[in-house]
Design a protein around this nucleic acid. Structure first.
Lengths: 364, 364
DNA sequence: TAAATTTATGGAAGGCCTTCCAATCTATCT
DNA sequence: AGATAGATTGGAAGGCCTTCCATAAATTTA
């Protein structure tokens, strides 16, 4: 406290040291102080030193909002993400954060717990001077937003979502579903089912289309009773519970039940596995399974599944956002990731799949 | 675009409508415009209407940073959270976000992927005008930070961490571990082991202490070889891999191996379960298990475990932060949560535990 | 109707920074 | 030494809002 000039000693709470205080104490102009803190080259080393020492003594730190206002840049971006996407979301977030930290940016997180919040968060993010750009995840961009947006709107990148007018980074659910289904076809199955999530969910619809297409291309009959959809609202049906009851439903088909099932997510697959076990059946012997996502636990269950490059997607989303911020006039670009098939035990191809091996590979 | 006054029509990108534009167009003073947007009561309804209509026509939205600068309040808080806490962290985050959204606040998320980032994020959060308060999770507050903090520092709440000089919200790992261990003792076990995480981790140390204490109080010998610690760095050892190899190590004790094990986290327990299965052993018949956390998947594995009220902790953390912001002089308060024991199948007490039942209860 | 309140309004000042231009200094060159 | 170019510096203006005070308008009261 001793270093503080008299006129500040009585301040509590609003003890706020400004650039003017530094300038006065160091007997320089405010411009020079500013220059020092912005690493402007044209400052005499002596002057710089003196300013820094005064700043340190008074514990000065530039005011973020004042900087933002003056620079017309917040150095912050917003991410609007459904919380329920859980694993997906944590990994993407890591990718985002790592990238962004290097660039000196901050992240405002808007987690969607209820659809009504989407509009609210979009509005906030789009407010002047709140953030420099927006990442929007896994939901449908509301039409109201699209309409009021125009050429000069804030940069926005869609991730795991699509709209022609905005940059997007999209996992090709259609192709992913085709690959998954083809894998089952190639293993010789002809009675193939699908356990899907709630059709309100765009990826769910796309995965269904891919499934249907693959069957058709493979000349395999699509039995309507083999496709189980869910009306579960929670997490759009991407839950263990939903997977569990969906599998039960398939098992109710009796001897007519599919010998192989494509499941829209690993989480559901885990639930489906329980249902199988409870019925005294096993995967892949009784029912072969290919799932989707490759969450961390997929390995534990030996799930053959479609892997989405989540961390990388987070990174790339940030990269694209910065490109867009630098060059707002660019036409929208759309990147498609095609998920890759990870073969483990649940499809029946890899007879010797062993969890222990994966442990050996991944342990440090 | 038609509604725009001439002098704005050519602006691109910086098309930025200010309070002055509104005032001019509506033929009022800027003060009145400001009052309208702040819902100040003393504005004639006619005037208010006119201003709102002009604002709408010009698509005016107040500038967040300018407001922040003038109000000396950012309406934003920072959360510094280790990303690896995963499940824990997502649930807490939901609690935070729900609470905060109601209060009109935003959240800046600083996810720690590497210890070195802690200091950096703390420094940023603590910068003038960046956020109004800080939530700090599950890590040790660096001494350097404690030292430079003083009475007038920014409000900060520790969650799942402790320091006498700051408000904290702490899960009592010691008591939790005692409860878990006692449960195994009451089930009649006398040869009890523990699988712990990396001792660098504070909760891990506390859980170990609780375990040792409970044994002592129960008059049960603590065999050093029964306690397995890990030197895994990743996630401080809270990983399936670590749990897997720890259990292997216990099994290597042969016939002397413990008949019951307290495991420091559900994630590790899942790994341990694999090790058991691979060795042809079962829980609880061969080894009874009580774990810690009650992540969503714990039910799936029928894990008996210590539940931490994560969502509620998120909410409460925000509440405490706001109390602190309102009353900075308050002496620090410390809330202890005691985790509750959730009995499922893995401890051997609940012979009829069935996953299906939980599904029935929780499904919507 | 005049005086006294109450309500509504305008706009300067203040919040804290960056940026730019003009002014000053220093070093280099002739 | 004087001229010139380059380095360094000061500080006004601008970024956009809130708040407060003085003033003006409307309403109530006597």
């Amino acid at each position: 406290m001793e270093g503080l000039p008299i006129y500040l000693q009585n301040y509590r709470c609003l003890l706020t040291v400004t650039i003017y205080d530094i300038a006065r104490e160091a007997k320089v102009g405010i411009g020079t102080v500013s220059r020092v803190f912005n690493n402007h080259p044209n400052v005499k080393p002596k002057t710089r030193e003196k300013i820094l020492s005064v700043a340190k003594r008074l514990n000065y730190h530039p005011h973020a909002y004042a900087q933002g206002l003056a620079r017309r840049r917040t150095n912050t971006i917003a991410a609007i993400i459904p919380f329920f996407t859980n694993y997906f979301f944590v990994e993407i977030l890591q990718g985002i954060q790592d990238k962004i930290t290097n660039l000196g940016y901050d992240l405002i997180l808007y987690g969607i717990n209820h659809p009504r919040e989407i509009d609210e968060y979009l509005r906030k993010s789009d407010q002047r001077g709140r953030v420099d750009g927006i990442l929007f995840f896994s939901s449908k961009l509301p039409e109201s937003f699209v309409e009021r947006s125009h050429v000069d709107s804030k940069p926005l990148i869609l991730v795991d979502a699509f709209h022609e007018r905005f940059d997007s980074l999209h996992v090709d659910n259609f192709k992913g579903a085709i690959a998954a289904t083809n894998h089952l076809i190639q293993l010789g199955h002809t009675n193939i089912g699908m356990i899907n999530a709630n059709l309100n969910n765009t990826p769910a619809r796309e995965r269904k289309d891919g499934f249907a297409d693959a069957l058709k291309a493979g000349g395999i009959e699509l039995r309507p009773q083999n496709i189980v959809e869910t009306n579960v609202i929670k997490n759009d049906g991407y839950t263990r519970e939903a997977g569990y009851s969906s599998m039960k439903q398939l098992l109710n088909l009796g001897t007519d039940r599919p010998t192989a099932v494509f499941i829209a997510s690993d989480v559901q697959a885990i639930g489906a596995l329980s249902a199988l076990r409870q019925a005294g059946l096993r995967a892949p012997e009784d029912v072969a399974i290919v799932a989707y996502d490759d969450i961390e636990l997929a390995a534990h269950f030996g799930l053959t599944t479609m892997r989405q490059p989540m961390y990388r997607m987070g990174e790339l989303a940030v990269e694209k956002l910065f490109q867009r911020m630098e060059n707002p006039a660019m036409p929208p670009s759309h990147v498609h990731f095609v998920p890759t098939l990870i073969v483990r035990g649940s499809c029946g191809m890899n007879k010797n799949y062993s969890l222990a091996e994966e442990f050996l590979q991944t342990s440090d």
